[in-house]
Nucleic acid binder design. Structure first.
Lengths: 184, 184
DNA sequence: CAGTGTTTTCAACGAAGATTGAAATCTCTG
DNA sequence: CAGAGATTTCAATCTTCGTTGAAAACACTG
């Protein structure tokens, strides 16, 4: 009882502290890809640990409720960032994180594209069609011009994303490596 | 009284409706770059309108309070997405949005890098240093391996971002164009 | 198929963040 | 430099989102 409280905050040994700090740092990034802090922390924990953990492990490490752990694990599965693992002779379910960081990144990017970019693009098409046959005074022309410019831009972004993400390939990593090399 | 309520939701003419729908669609993207929905809507309004607006214009179009409008405009200035404009013979301040979409994108990306990526990288360095001289049993080795892999990855992302964003140049647009063309 | 261990669901609650509005501050103008 | 107009600030309030915990559903095992 005394022991399990004493180690709150800064963990016993360097490895545990590193694990805890990583989990927390990764949690800060939650906003960066539109998931809750807890969900990011669960993911970080599974990633850094590198082995399959069960709901109780997650609850204990992160000090969260069973319901919260269950929902976060479910959401991470929906994103495709973790997978279920069965251990025979054990009735509990275990989960482990995708270990390849590029795959992880691609998964997140693909999901965000689906949830944010694609709907935006769809909206922009609809909006353009609203004003397709409007006689343009000066103001209308300016506004339409801006909308068209934005649509072009978002289309370009979408095209780039698609070429990286949609095939099964790992074009992303290649491209990034190419880009970081000689910028001639 | 009847009139100003009647046009809530769908605006009178196609142009106004397009403007309103764009503002709303752009507002949905707020989460995507870590600002509040209102702030994104103010930005969208200024962008699509294409001319300088004052606080009262913003308040009226978006149906928000003076305080909220003031704070959102301030925040957008801090981000560098809008600039103040003085109209002579008028005591009010006016604001207009950056009109070049690539510049806009670069501004947002640069700010996010500063606020999210750089701190993450700093944390990861600290975390690595924690475990630098730990004798590694099997578990510790695995965890350290994962942390190193993640650090490499984030360093790479940082390097790519930096090469696009930090110079004054428009390397980003060029790179994107290059990437969308023949993928050989 | 009863019993036990495990996971999921969800209404109530709590925390974090956004918004308001009015007072305080600032800034022109005559 | 008084006063009107414009902007900013911030405590109180509202809203939204995340979390809890216990009940229900589920899934094994003997």
């Amino acid at each position: 009882m005394a022991r399990s409280n004493a180690q709150r905050g800064s963990a016993r040994n360097p490895i545990e502290e590193a694990q805890e700090r990583f989990t927390s740092a990764w949690g800060q990034m939650a906003g960066a890809w539109g998931i809750s802090r807890t969900m990011a922390e669960v993911h970080a924990l599974l990633y850094v640990t590198g082995e399959a953990l069960c709901t109780d492990d997650v609850m204990e490490h992160l000090q969260i409720s069973r319901g919260n752990a269950s929902m976060s694990l479910r959401a991470l599965q929906d994103w495709g960032l973790i997978t279920r693992v069965h251990k025979r002779g054990d009735r509990k379910e275990y989960f482990e994180a995708e270990s390849d960081v590029w795959t992880m990144f691609r998964t997140i990017a693909r999901e965000r594209k689906k949830r944010e970019l694609d709907p935006l693009l769809a909206s922009l098409y609809e909006i353009r069609d609203l004003t397709r046959d409007t006689k343009s005074d000066e103001t209308a022309a300016r506004i339409n011009g801006r909308l068209d410019t934005m649509l072009d831009f978002v289309e370009t972004i979408e095209a780039v994303s698609r070429s990286f993400l949609s095939p099964d390939g790992n074009g992303l990593e290649d491209a990034v490596v190419r880009l970081t090399q000689t910028e001639d």
